[in-house]
């Protein structure tokens, strides 16, 4: 229930500011973004093991519901998901050194605010914008051996982008984004507990996934 209250609170000020033209009065839109980045510092979903030697591209899918709150501002609530992989080195119960790959499923609830460059003639929701984003990320390893380990963390990011409308209703979005995932990433394979070890691996993977991304998106104006 508290999440619902938080959402209601966040959207309440959208309605308070009537001086938000949107696009010809249309202020709400949905958007799908495909983020892509070089898979550095870890395996991709299809890599069985580390991808240091191979150039791979990782993807992330993002769906958002957005609302224009002022002439230069848009807030949005989104959902992120992507699959990737982690490789974990650990000692098993018999103190043997093990190295295992696992698929990693990551989901996130995102909240963002886009600030449009009014000095460059942009008017929310189209034109150039700054993007500020916060996420609550959940990453869970899919391998049976790690299944009980779920890593949760926060993310803050900044991006810059441009949205261009076409056919009066649709738009494309290009943006680039950098971000920081919170949490402890110091790793001591030999001394850390198994769970800590997996958690750190997941965090490191998520961190390297989110640190710099490019994006192509498409969206539709609703009302």
């Amino acid at each position: 229930m508290k999440y619902l209250y938080t959402l209601m609170f966040l959207f309440s000020f959208c309605l308070a500011n009537a001086q938000a033209p949107g696009y010809l009065g249309k202020k709400t839109f949905i958007e799908y973004d495909l983020f892509y980045m070089l898979a550095v510092g870890g395996p991709t979903t299809n890599n069985k093991m580390y991808a240091y030697d191979n150039l791979g591209i990782s993807y992330r899918h993002n769906f958002t519901l957005n609302h224009v709150v002022s002439r230069s501002g848009v807030i949005g609530l989104g959902f992120d998901f992507f699959n990737t992989g982690i490789g974990v080195d650990y000692r098993d119960s018999e103190d043997n050194f093990q190295s295992k790959f696992s698929k990693l499923k990551v989901t996130a609830i995102c909240l963002h605010y886009d600030k449009y460059f009014m000095k460059r003639g942009s008017l929310a929701p189209f034109g150039f914008y700054h993007h500020f984003e916060g996420k609550y990320i959940t990453g869970s390893a899919q391998e049976d051996a790690f299944k009980d380990v779920v890593h949760k963390t926060f993310y803050t990011g900044y991006g810059i982008g441009i949205k261009k409308i076409f056919k009066e209703k649709f738009f494309v979005n290009f943006s680039g984004q950098v971000g920081w995932t919170w949490g402890d990433r110091s790793l001591d394979t030999f001394n850390d507990s198994f769970e800590k070890n997996v958690q750190t691996r997941i965090n490191k993977r998520i961190y390297s996934h989110y640190i710099f991304e490019n994006n192509i998106g498409i969206g539709i104006l609703l009302f």
């Binding site: 033209p21 009065g25 261009k164 409308i165």
Partner: peptide, 26 residues
């Protein structure tokens, strides 16, 4: 006076006109 660093497409022009009239009316 709004400099627009993009094409004066129908959508862009209409968006600015709509915004202008909204400000006049509000």
């Amino acid at each position: 006076m709004n400099p627009l660093f993009e094409k004066d497409s129908k959508s862009v022009v209409n968006a600015h006109l709509y915004d202008t009239f909204l400000q006049i009316k509000k």
